[in-house]
Amino acid sequence: MVRLKNEAAAGTPGIENAADPGPKSELPREAQPFRHNFITTKLEYYINWGRKNALWPMPFGTACCAIEFMSVVSSHYDLSRFGAEVVRFSPRQSDLLVVAGTVVDKMGPILKTIYDQMPEPKWVIAMGVCASSGGFYRAYHVMQGIDEIVPVDVYVPGCPPTPEGLMHGILRLQDAIQKGETRSQRETSLLDRGKPVDLPQSVITREDLARRQGAS
């Protein structure tokens, strides 16, 4: 199924090295001239490989984490090494939403709008504990994690996370994209196969909120 005649890619998971195809998988005669010049792979794998290495982040920077995000894209840490350098402030041009900072209740509808404006497939990183869980702001105006309103693929802990932490989060996201395990990809895959999309919904209602506060 997967054949590869490229020595450099040997050992890359998902791309089989066919340098030694074994006695039973002889290449057909007409393919012999291309023996060292082409790869074969799954289309899905190839597309995901392209997607993960060309992330276009939309920084939804609200607070301190946005400053560390600036550090990550700046010269010293240089996020472009991982292919995520094209920072776009328009949600319509980007596929990775980096929520960097606290999201308060007043900001909630705006974050939701921005998420809805992004084209599929799209990914969400909750950078820092405020975006992940509200952090140490257990307060009357702070959303207790953005997953109340948008689904999150990767949570990056830290207050703020170190630049290395965020880069690790992006690498983890790349792994997930490669395997097709992100929410957006799973949704598309279910839709493609005509199956019902029964992924957990991350929408909080007023009743949920009242119940949660009643319990605390």
Binding site: D105, G108, P109, Y140, H141, I204, R206, L209
Partner: peptide, 8 residues
């Protein structure tokens, strides 16, 4: 109370 939220 410090943590009584209201949704927008």
């Amino acid at each position: 109370p410090p943590d009584a939220r209201h949704m927008l």
